[in-house]
């Protein structure tokens, strides 16, 4: 099964190393405003959320693209934008519910996380494993386990 980027928001410290690694890999400079992964900081609530494309199975950005520039590679699961076909109409920006594909002023094209072709650089610099690159099954299994941990106390209370 193709690996995906898994975000564990509770572990994110907001250091932004992912944005720096991403922009260096993709645009050759350190510049979070051009990073494909974006950390949203809710400062006063101490909450940090890395927001990045989840490589949807049926990507709305691809469905709406009038030039057929956005496709999903069946083998790798990566949703890619063809630089040749994209004409910068920004329809995909409208279609994505999460803000994970956006128009680059510099390139005049739509850009998004393409998992660095299968070796995402952001993950390499994440100190707390807020970002992991692994099988999607692990994500859902992990969530089930976290749920079990929470419910454990409730059930134990009932047993008493």
């Amino acid at each position: 099964m193709a690996k995906i980027l898994i975000v564990n928001a509770s572990e994110c410290t907001g250091c932004g190393a992912c944005e720096l690694a991403c922009s260096m890999r993709n645009v050759g400079e350190f510049n979070p405003s051009r990073s494909r992964i974006q950390i949203v900081s809710l400062e006063s609530d101490f909450f940090r959320l890395p927001v990045v494309c989840s490589q949807c199975y049926k990507p709305p950005c691809a469905a709406i693209c009038p030039t057929g520039a956005i496709t999903r590679d069946e083998a790798t699961g990566i949703v890619e934008v063809s630089k040749e076909k994209c004409d910068g109409c920004r329809m995909c920006e409208e279609a994505c519910p999460f803000g994970n594909i956006f128009f680059s002023e510099q390139e005049q094209k739509a850009v998004k996380c393409e998992l660095c072709g299968g070796d995402p650089q952001c993950v390499l610099f994440c100190a707390t494993k807020a970002l992991e690159f692994r099988e999607p099954e692990a994500k859902t299994a992990g969530k089930r386990r976290a749920l079990a941990e929470k419910l454990k106390e409730v059930y134990q209370l009932q047993a008493v």
Binding site: G14, C15, G16, A17, R48
Partner: peptide, 10 residues
Amino acid sequence: SLACTACPRH
């Protein structure tokens, strides 16, 4: 736990 920019120490 929070961090300054680009710091793995948080």
